[in-house]
Simulated scan of single mutants.
Amino acid sequence: MGIIFIGLAFLPKFVSAVLAIPGPVVAAYLVVILSLIFVFGMKILLQEGLDHRMGLVVGVAFWIGTAFQLDWIYPEYFQGAWEELLGNGMTVGGFTVILLTLFMEATGGRPARLKTRLTAETWPEIDAFLTKFAERRRWGEQMELRLRAVGEETLQILTRGKGCDPVAEAEVGRRLLLIVRPDGDAADLEFIATTDEDQLAMLSEAAASLPVEAETPLRLLRHYASSIRHQQYHDIDILTIRVEPVQRSGA
């Protein structure tokens, strides 16, 4: 969209048409667009879940953006180009979110990554990777078993209906990127792959509605994981799973 608007800026007739739009019409358009953006942002926050870190990022970004929008923060020092850039609360709030997120990523635990083929035959490699990660964090046997169980059940879901023929899987060349991030005593696992959308979509449904025999991996995954989130971008699926110790998750 940015590239499109930059291109349209070089078309005088389009610019003239935009400038000819009456002010009340533009105001009504902005009210609708900003309302939709606000609702969309709240939907993302509710889906992600507001923990103490996310709440801090959102709260600080909101109030800093509001302060710059209303000229509460030393407006005399921001003149000219800086006034145009920092006078928009959405821009300042967005930059604040990016900076705070980068800071938390840099000061938090270092994530571990594994790139491999997405086949049932690669489970020993994934299992060894998760075991080594848990041992390095000194989480104990119970947390290690939970991580391994989540990895096994997730791999079964991702390879459902495709793990019967290893030769065919190799020819397709489906890849998996597994990222594990420590968060205190908990762990966030991110599986990035090209997967079957119908199987993953069932994760968001109630466990009671799943057929017991056909969806055993889904039920087991729900038992070991504290939260499960599925996102899809074109043909790439991202499955984010949070695993917490037994005493915190209540499982």
Rank of each mutant, 00 (worst) to 15 (best):
G89C: 00
E84R: 10
E84G: 10
Q79G: 08
V92K: 05
E76S: 14
G94C: 06
N88S: 12
G94Y: 00
L85I: 12
T91K: 09
F95S: 09
L85E: 01
W72K: 11
E76N: 15
W82D: 07
E83H: 15
L70P: 07
V92R: 06
F78C: 00
T96D: 04
F78Q: 05
T91Y: 10
F68R: 09
G87M: 01
V97H: 00
Q69P: 00
L86C: 00
A81E: 08
G89R: 05
N88W: 01
F78D: 01
I73G: 06
Y74P: 11
L85N: 00
G89F: 04
F78I: 08
I98W: 03
T91E: 02
Y74F: 13
T96I: 02
I98P: 11
V97F: 03
N88H: 11
F95K: 02
Y77F: 14
N88R: 08
E83R: 14
F95W: 08
V92N: 01
Q69F: 09
W72D: 11
L70T: 11
M90W: 09
F78Y: 12
L86Q: 03
M90A: 13
W82G: 10
V97G: 01
W72S: 15
E76P: 08
V92D: 02
G89E: 00
V97I: 13
N88P: 00
G93L: 00
T96W: 03
M90C: 07
A81R: 11
M90H: 10
Y77R: 14
E83D: 11
F95M: 15
F78L: 12
E83L: 10
W82H: 13
E84L: 11
G94D: 04
W72V: 10
V97L: 03
Q69I: 02
Q69M: 09
D71M: 08
F78S: 00
W82Q: 13
V92S: 04
G93S: 05
V92I: 07
I98S: 07
I73S: 07
W82A: 14
I73R: 08
W82E: 07
L70H: 14
L85F: 07
